[in-house]
Each structure stands twice: as C-alpha cells, then as structure tokens.
Nucleic acid binder design. Structure first.
Lengths: 186, 186
DNA sequence: CTCCAAATTAAACAATGTTCAATTGATGGT
DNA sequence: ACCATCAATTGAACATTGTTTAATTTGGAG
C-alpha cells in the first residue's frame, strides 16, 4: 500500500520532504498511478493520518487495558501518548498540522478517530467520580487531554525550555495532578 | 517593509498560499529583490513570526498591566492570548508550525521571544507563592501555559469538540483553576 | 487468438523556491 | 555637464512540486 510507504518516508526524511513522486517510486509506480487511487495529495495525507491515529490509539488501549485504577490508567495513557509522539515525531505532527486546503472539510471519520482518545479519558474520569454529570466529565477530559497535547507539541517542536530540572513527563504529571485533584474535590 | 505585506497576505489568504512572488508583487518589487533582503523564504517567515510574537506580547502586556491581583493577571493573559489567536489564526499558527528546514536552527532571538510569555506567567506565580523555589515556579508556569496553548491550538484547528456546553474560555478557566489550586495548596 | 476494459505510463502544465548575469539608477568626483 | 562606479533591481532561467490527460501497456473473458 502507498500509505505505508508514505508513512515510512515521513518517518525517515521528515514530512517536509514527503512528495507524491517519492511515494510512487517507493512502491515501484509512477506518479500518475497515485492519482487514480487518491484524488489529491492531501487525500493521501488524510488516509495516512487516519492510520497514524489508529496505530496510536491501539497502542494506548493495549498498554493501558491491564491497569485497574482509573487514575493510573490516565497516567499510563498520557505516558504512551508522549512516547508515541516522541518516537514518531513527524507522523504525529502531520496529524495535527495538516489541514485540507480549500474544499472538503476534514472527513467525519477523522474527527471520530480523534475523539476516541478524549472519550477514553472521560470514561476513566467517570469511574473516578461517578456522581459528576456527563458534561462536567467531558469538559474536564477535554481540558486535561488538550493540556497534555499542548505540552507534547511544544516540547516536540523544540519550543519549550526543557531545563534539566523539568522534563516533559514531569510537566504532564503536574497537569494531571492538578486537574484530577480539582476534579475530585470540587 | 516586506514583512508587513507578508503578514497581511497570511491574514487575508491563509498561510498556505503565502508565496514569495505574491509578497514581492504586494510591495511593488520582483521576486529577485526579495532574495537580496532575505536569504530564504523561511528567513522571511522567521522575521514575520518574530513580529507576530512581539505584537502579541505587547498586547498581552498592555492589557494586563493595570490588573493588581496576580491570579487575575494570569487569567487576563490567557484571555488575550486566546483572543489574539482567534483574531489572527493563520499568523498565530505559523509561529508554532513553521520550522526552518535543514541547516540553521531557529535563531536564539526567537526562543527568547517565546520565553517572554512563560516568564510573565512565572512572575505572577511567584507573587502568588513567594516561598516556592524558582524551579517549582518555572515548572508550574511551563505546565500551565503549555496546557493553555494546547487548548488553543486544538480549538483553533477545529480538532476539538466544542459542544455548546464548554467553550475555549471555560476549558482554559478549568485548567487555570486546577493548576493554581495545586500550586497554592501543595 | 482477439478484443475490451482496466491499469499504468509518459509527457505536459502551471506554480513554487532559488539563482545569477544583465540592466537600470543614482551618486559622487572631476 | 559628463562619466565612472557601485548598489539596487530585474528578467530569465532551473529544478521540483502537484495535477491532468492522452496514449500505451497489460491481463483476462469470450
């Protein structure tokens, strides 16, 4: 599949140098053939991003299923999330920085895929405080997970001062501590 | 100046369609001239991003100077940040999504400019709890501001489900509440 | 073996960043 | 007033990109 070849290219050469012809060459075809499979170059990227999200979501689910405590599970989720982002920085960034230019908005399947992780967080929050109304749970889950994402992306793109004292993981721990305490006691 | 023309172009047509020739045409010159002023196209973008950060930082400082309470000041900072990002989405995104390809790393001045806002947050945190050691203060400031940034960027790029119940501002309020409480009482 | 449809290619197009020799323009000295 | 020098500006060229399409190849069905 062309998608896998594209993913491998992004991983080895960075998403800046991902090109239609390179993808075609990588799978032994010509650029024209690609355009009979995908409408756009963006179409290819979108499919590739979908695969990236699925891969990451599966990894998170796999590595957190065994945990019993919901708080521990949330912390494990975040850990796997930053690990995946660190291991595949370009593929991960493409998921969030790509936007289909002009025309069709991001397909619904993409939105669903992203929402999966927010819902996983919400599920665990509900387990922590079952008495909270769903809207509060969803709200807190969104705030927490977006915050984690923010730390992740700033650190990954080198836009965060990560002095010896505080690492990405510690920053995320602080955020989780804060939001969970607030969620429990208020 | 070419930088202002570029900024205007990004604002009106989006950063996807920012092009060297368009910038040159906008200021009545030819593309060749641009390349005697800037080494790269990325060089131009970097200069433009510097101006964007300065503009935003000035706005934040201006709108928060009058506030007396450090907590109120932090909330006001976040509010202005969100407002600026919402008002100039493409210019704001460029600041965080652009990376100079190959060769020279992002110049030091850029890093300094970004750190300004983290330091503003840290200053206010120190005022809230002067007994904390500087590292803790810096750590908390980084976690909080990165989290706010995460909410901001996900919301702005449409990758966040913003149901009627919770808006960007409310999400950020939740994050600030959580981190500040944790910072005060622990 | 033939023939048709599908797959694949090759070539072309416009637009992009980038370079550089040639041209213009102005400035200062005699 | 003229000219010489130097910087500013241009125009044309290049390689590379996404994208389209007519032509060619390929692979089975009859």
């Amino acid at each position: 599949m062309a998608i896998s070849a594209a993913a491998k290219l992004v991983e080895t050469e960075g998403f800046q140098s991902l090109t239609a012809r390179k993808v075609a060459a990588k799978i032994g075809y010509t650029v024209g053939t690609l355009y009979h499979v995908f409408r756009n170059f963006d179409d290819l990227v979108i499919h590739m991003n979908a695969q990236t999200i699925d891969e990451m979501a599966a990894l998170i689910q796999q590595k957190t299923r065994k945990k019993r405590n919901p708080e521990v599970r949330i912390r494990a989720m975040a850990e796997v999330y930053v690990q995946y982002a660190t291991d595949h920085p370009d593929r991960w960034r493409l998921v969030f920085e790509h936007q289909a230019p002009s025309g069709l908005p991001t397909p619904a399947q993409m939105k669903e895929r992203r929402d999966v992780m927010f819902e996983m967080v919400a599920d665990n929050l509900r387990e922590i405080s079952p008495e909270r109304i769903p809207q509060e749970v969803a709200h807190t889950a969104t705030a927490l997970w977006s915050g984690i994402h923010g730390i992740c992306i700033l650190a990954l793109t080198g836009k965060l001062y990560l002095g010896g004292a505080f690492s990405m993981v510690k920053l995320i721990d602080t955020l989780i501590d804060s939001v969970l305490n607030e969620f429990r006691h208020r």
